[in-house]
Each structure stands twice: as structure tokens, then as C-alpha cells.
Amino acid sequence: MERIPVLRMGSLLLITIQVDMHDKLALQLQDDVTERISEWGSTGVLIDISSLEIVDSFIGRMLANIAGMSRVLGAETVVVGMQPAVAITLVELGMSLTGVRTALSVEAGMELLYGNAFTGSEDEQRTEA
């Protein structure tokens, strides 16, 4: 079955959405993320949407759902890499993605999440890595 891979990177889950999403894939991804979080005890979820050419209300709802479910399980979600044209369109569509944190790049997203997972300093972060 077609599936969006959920990778483990230390305490984070890394998801890169590259395909044109449809219902089954989105639901499967929500299930997979929650299962992985409880299995691996992940504290952060990074979703890279830089290859997505549009984000409609369906995808927006999926992102919000993943963020909401992850939060209940103790993991923060950051959505990274939204294309500028997508961001402009989202605003006009009226979708504010409340409750979903965003960052420009995977690196920036990781910084956000590690800052979250380890309340310590940058040095501590490096020892972890």
C-alpha cells in the first residue's frame, strides 16, 4: 500500500510530504504518526511540505489534526518549508493554521523543536546530537 514514510531522527519524527495527498493517505499518515510517537516516545514532529504545490482546507485540516493529536501525546509539531505562493493562497483562502507552528526550513524547525525538547542551552543540544 502507498504510504508516506515516517522517519525517526533521535527524539523527532521527520515526515516529508511529496505526493499529491488524497483521503486514505492522509488518514494513514495520522495513524502512523500517533503510533510512532507512542512507540518511540518522540517529543517532536517535523513535517516538510516544501514540495507541496498547494495546501487546501483538506491538507490544512490534516496538518492541524496531526499537530493536535501529537500534542495530546506530548509531541510538538512544526510544519516547515511552505512555498511563498502557497502561503499567500492559504491566507486568501482564510486558513490560519492555528495551533500549527511553522518554520522556514528543516533546520529552523529542528531548532524550534530541540529548544522545546531540551530546555537547556545550545551546548547541551550538541551533546545530544
Binding site: I54, A85, I88
Partner: peptide
């Protein structure tokens, strides 16, 4: 590109 994105959305 922005208009394409609006149309497709």
C-alpha cells in the same frame, strides 16, 4: 505562480 496556486487551490 501565485495565480496558478490560487486556481489549483
Amino acid at each position: 505562480l501565485v495565480d496558478q496556486t490560487k486556481l489549483v487551490t
